[in-house]
Design a protein around this nucleic acid. Sequence first.
DNA 1: TCCTTGTATTGATGTTCATCGAAGCACCAT
DNA 2: ATGGTGCTTCGATGAACATCAATACAAGGA
Lengths: 114, 114
Amino acid sequence: MELPTIQSDACCSLAGTVIDEAAAARIAPMFKALGDPVRLRLAALIASQPEVCVCDLQGHFTLSGPTISHHLKVLREAGLIGGERRGTWVFYWINPDALQSLSALLQPTVPAAS
Amino acid sequence: MELPTIQSDACCSLAGTVIDEAAAARIAPMFKALGDPVRLRLAALIASQPEVCVCDLQGHFTLSGPTISHHLKVLREAGLIGGERRGTWVFYWINPDALQSLSALLQPTVPAAS
DNA sequence: TCCTTGTATTGATGTTCATCGAAGCACCAT
DNA sequence: ATGGTGCTTCGATGAACATCAATACAAGGA
C-alpha cells in the first residue's frame, strides 16, 4: 500500500513539519477565520492601525451591523484580534503574535539558493 | 475583555495595506482551503516531501477515499497544490509560491516594495 | 479481453455558515 | 428617569460544506 518516499531532501513546507491532529484542530480555525473575504478585509483594516473603532469599519462594507459584529466575533474567537469597549465605542486591535505564527507556518524553511 | 496590547506606531499589518474587495475575493479561498483540519494536515504532509502519492496520504486519516479526494481537489482549486497521474498512482506536490505569498501577507514587517 | 487496483465523480444527507431583522444591552446626554 | 446612539445577541433562513456509498474512470496485469 505504502510506497517508499524520499524524505531527506530539504523541501519547502508548512514549517517543515507534519502537523498532527491536535495541532491542526488548534491552527485551522485561524486560517478558517481569514478564509472569508469580509473577515480578511476586516483583519487588514484592523491591522492597518493600532486600533480601530467598529464605527469606522462599517462604512467599508455594504453589510448590516449584526453581520459585521458576527465576523468580528469569529476573528476574536480565533485569537486573531482583541476588542474592548471604551465608553460609547468598541475598539479592536490585531493580535500580531497570531499573525506571526501563521506566517511562520507557511514560510518555506529553506529558501531556494538561486 | 482583555487589555489592549501596547503597539508602536510602526504597526503590524497584513502586508501593511488594506485589502480591497477584489484582492480579498482572490486570497480568501486560499486561507479557506487551509481552514479545515484535514486539509491543513494534507497540505503539511504534501509539503513535507517533494511529492506524495495519494496512496500514502490515505493512511494518515480515518476518512473514506472520496473524502480525501474531495479535500485534495479543494486544495488544488485554491492553487495550493498541484497534482498529476503517473501510471497507476496520482501524485501531489505543494505550490511554494502560494504559501510564500500568504506568508508574506501575514508578515508583520512590511516587506520591501516589489 | 476481462479482472483488479487506485483515484475521481455523482448523489444524498446532516451540519455548519453568512446574512438579516428584531430585540437587548451599554453608555451618554439631557 | 428618559431618550438616543453604538454595538451585540437572538432567531430564522437559505446556501455552502464535509462526509459517505455507489458508481465511473484510468491504468496495468492475467
